[in-house]
């Protein structure tokens, strides 16, 4: 589904490469973990997969077509959803409005369907009352749950999550991982999670480590 071909990335000077000649493949129905130490380039790699930035060299292909060909905007809109560590949501909206907005922008199949959005929120552990609250009134864990529910609402086949459990307690982290597993196994999506936590990586189907500018399957 998603493949990187001789992917390289550097900031400014080509001598300062974050990673070089990366050839990886991610398929639908699997949960992947990308691990590595802090500052090694995990977030940058995940941003490349999410179409938030362009590679310095090499290509990323989605279903055999390069992202440049698909169009970065189109790719982000229709094929990929991203969960960030923090500040995932529109702070001036309620949880429900966040989902409805995302569905409308991405032109999701259920766009405008409030009942569907509420159902997704409930499945992510957000009750109806909390769904109507401004997201700033929710806990960080609840906010991450809303972010996960948002990705579920959109029709994207790929979910890229960067440290989704970082701000969340152990129980909450387990719930969020379960939701991501459900997205991978039940909805046959390709879920790629960036994490430093070993317990998170252990629950994934495959783990790839970024170490000294090289990726290695563990």
């Amino acid at each position: 589904m998603l493949r990187t071909k001789k992917l390289s990335y550097w900031y400014g000077n080509a001598a300062n490469k974050l990673f070089d000649h990366v050839d990886l493949e991610f398929t639908a129905g699997h949960l992947y973990a990308v691990v590595g130490k802090s500052g090694v380039g995990k977030t940058t790699f995940l941003s490349l997969l999410a179409g938030l930035t362009r590679p310095s060299k090499g290509v990323i292909e989605f279903e055999g077509r390069g992202l440049a060909k698909i169009g970065m905007l189109n790719y982000r809109k229709r094929h990929v959803s991203m969960i960030f560590q923090t500040e995932n949501l529109f702070s001036y909206m309620s949880a429900l409005d966040n989902l409805l907005t995302a569905m409308e922008i991405t032109e999701a199949h259920h766009a405008g369907d409030q009942g569907y959005a509420l159902q997704q929120l409930e499945q992510s552990g957000i009750d109806r009352r909390s769904a109507q609250c401004r997201v700033t009134q929710l806990t960080l864990e609840q906010q991450q749950r809303v972010a996960v529910a948002r990705t579920m609402c959109c029709d994207s086949q790929i979910i890229v999550a960067d440290e989704p459990t970082n701000q969340v307690g152990q129980e909450g982290a387990g719930d969020i991982l379960e939701l991501l597993q459900a997205a991978a196994y039940e909805q046959q999506r390709c879920v790629i999670v960036g994490t430093k936590k070993v317990e998170v990586a252990k629950k994934c189907d495959a783990v790839v480590e970024l170490h000294q500018r090289k990726f290695e399957w563990l």
Partner: peptide
């Protein structure tokens, strides 16, 4: 910035 980032990541023009 955060709000704009989210909008752009969702594919907003």
């Amino acid at each position: 910035r955060a709000e704009i980032g989210i909008l752009l990541s969702l594919g907003e023009k």
